[in-house]
């Protein structure tokens, strides 16, 4: 599947954008040319050789703060996605196999979680468990887990009712055998789509929370926090919020693009898409012969 995603231009673009962001998260804090917390007398200056993106209201180097803040932001969104995955997928599969009672119970829990406004809940939970990104992200992760529950359940249901599963049953296969052999491969692509999408959602949430000053102690930099402080000095530096905003947008856009690319290449729709591309290429460039093999029906 990875190869097929990379075969799409949008897939390559998404992976490219996300790799740069991931590199920032890993290396950002060490690459920062200045101390992201170090204040100076030079407040609210424009870009210069010393301060590529200028300084903020306390005279801190904005570029260094962006680099240092990337790790918190990215780790937070990944945490949201992973927690949602862990909490949602297993009950999603089991809801199909463990009988009516379990199904009803998990469905109602999923409905309940969906009904809760997660941003407000995250705020409430940080008040209870302490103001930290992990606590807030844990809450958000649990609250968006119904997405994974639903997606997994839908995919599993489709498989469970298929004839090849019945054929396996007739051969004497156990539920575990069927899950390992037939269900897993079908559930993975939609879960991957949901995962990429949730990373995007998580990013917006981390940025929103840190914009509100929740989850991060004040001097520590985050992209959302930068955006918030820049907005306070809009009249002095109207261009300042552009950079953190662009970074946030690029990451979310990259995640959604990746989700689209995964969806496009998996299953029947993926084959149809590749076919129509081939047909278009053929029309644009009729001189170039195209191998006939693998024609989809």
């Amino acid at each position: 599947m990875v190869r097929r995603v990379l075969a799409l231009p949008t897939g390559r673009l998404a992976v490219g954008v996300l790799s740069v962001i991931a590199l920032l998260a890993i290396l950002g804090p060490t690459l920062a040319p200045h101390n992201p917390l170090g204040t100076s007398a030079l407040t609210l200056t424009g870009p210069s050789w010393k301060h590529w993106l200028g300084t903020d209201y306390l005279g801190r180097d904005v570029f260094s703060r962006l680099l240092a803040g990337s790790r918190t932001s990215v780790l937070g969104s990944v945490e949201v996605a992973l927690i949602a995955l862990a909490v949602g997928v297993v009950p999603g599969i089991l809801s199909v196999y463990l009988g009516r009672g379990f199904e009803w119970f998990t469905l109602r829990i999923a409905d309940t979680l969906l009904a809760l406004p997660f941003l407000i809940y995250a705020v409430a939970v940080t008040a209870l468990l302490g103001n930290g990104i992990p606590q807030a992200m844990f809450t958000v992760g649990v609250l968006v887990s119904p997405l994974f529950y639903r997606v997994t359940r839908a995919a599993t249901l489709a498989v469970a009712r298929s004839q090849y599963v019945e054929a396996a049953l007739i051969s004497g296969a156990s539920i575990g055998w069927i899950a390992r052999r037939h269900v897993w491969g079908k559930v993975l692509p939609p879960v991957a789509v949901a995962l990429a999408q949730t990373i995007g959602v998580g990013f917006v949430v981390v940025s929103s929370l840190s914009f509100l000053g929740i989850g991060v102690q004040p001097p520590a930099p985050t992209w959302g926090g930068l955006l918030a402080s820049d907005l306070g000095y809009l009249s002095y530096q109207p261009w300042a919020p552009i950079v953190p905003a662009l970074l946030i947008m690029a990451t979310v856009w990259g995640s959604n693009l990746l989700a689209d690319a995964i969806r496009d290449v998996s299953g029947e729709a993926g084959r149809a898409l590749l076919n129509s591309r081939r047909a278009r290429a053929r029309r644009l460039n009729p001189a170039e012969p195209i191998p006939a093999g693998g024609a989809a029906r």
């Binding site: 047909a279 053929r282 195209i290 006939a292 024609a295």
Partner: peptide, 8 residues
């Protein structure tokens, strides 16, 4: 009738 995908 022609199929444009594999030009057949």
């Amino acid at each position: 009738i022609r199929d444009d995908v594999n030009d057949r």
